[in-house]
Nucleic acid binder design. Structure first.
Lengths: 140, 140
DNA sequence: GTTAGTGCAAACTCTTTGCAGCACT
DNA sequence: AGTGCTGCAAAGAGTTTGCACTAAC
């Protein structure tokens, strides 16, 4: 299954790449290269450079979305039917997907007003999740 | 004038900081620490670490907005009356401010649905500006 | 006089690259 | 067999930190 996805993108279906796709699928939220790296088992380990390289090539071939978050790290996620954005907890980095993307209309307006060819957008809303807010209250 | 802004924020009004505010004001668009550093004249130079430190403390005190762009670099801008977002050219990094921010309504919805306390958001739209698109056409 | 700001050098984090060897097709 | 993938080590970019000195209040 992952096999076909990779081949269709012109990439070789190696065990490591299939595992990375599986990890991203199970993760359910965007992961950093480091997190993907650590999710490999002892049996099938993978070098960190390889993780970076594979994630980047898969992102180039549109298998993954690559986004930078406010913590300065790059996060990867499967590029499913339509893209998604996240609400991220500042404290624990848990994230909640945001279903609707309010930017399509804005992009149309911008194209007309500025002459730019719009190639993409990214947004992220940050906050503090109820659990972390609770912990914070306990401390005080 | 910058003097009062700094003091009101509990910071000392040093020549370097006043100059940084001036540079950001003249720039008219978000600048990286490196760009601010290079904008200093030979007469009044400033160490790069000092630029980083000063920009970060001014951002902590809400004098500046600090945002990370898709190129992985941190950009600083004056925190004027209401915040702004940018449409950034992928090629030359020229940026156009976006007046209206479509996220306020979304944030209200999210607060209700997720229980998160929303602390901020960031978004950036990328594209190719007409000038760079033109140059690209010439090359081909 | 105190406290906060600055310069310099070194360290740190995340990410990329060169090269030799290995594995998928 | 050939091209693309991988591991390892080293380098690179951007940013932060420790410490001694200086300047603003």
């Amino acid at each position: 299954m992952d096999e076909q996805i990779l081949k269709k993108a012109g990439l070789k279906a190696t065990p490591r790449r299939k595992e990375m796709l599986r990890i991203l699928l199970n993760g359910g939220c965007p992961l950093t290269a480091e997190e993907v790296y650590h999710a490999f088992s002892e049996k099938q380990s993978c070098n960190l450079s390889t993780v970076y390289r594979a994630l980047n090539t898969m992102a180039e071939r549109r298998l993954l979305q690559k986004n930078i978050h406010r913590d300065g790290r790059v996060y990867y996620q499967l590029n499913l039917e339509h893209h998604s954005h996240q609400l991220v907890c500042e404290r624990c980095h848990e994230s909640v997907p945001i279903d609707l993307c309010p930017l399509e209309q804005l992009e149309r307006d911008l194209r007309e007003n500025t002459g730019y060819r719009i190639t993409g957008h990214q947004f992220e809303i940050s906050g503090v999740c109820p659990r972390c807010a609770e912990k914070e209250r306990e401390k005080k």
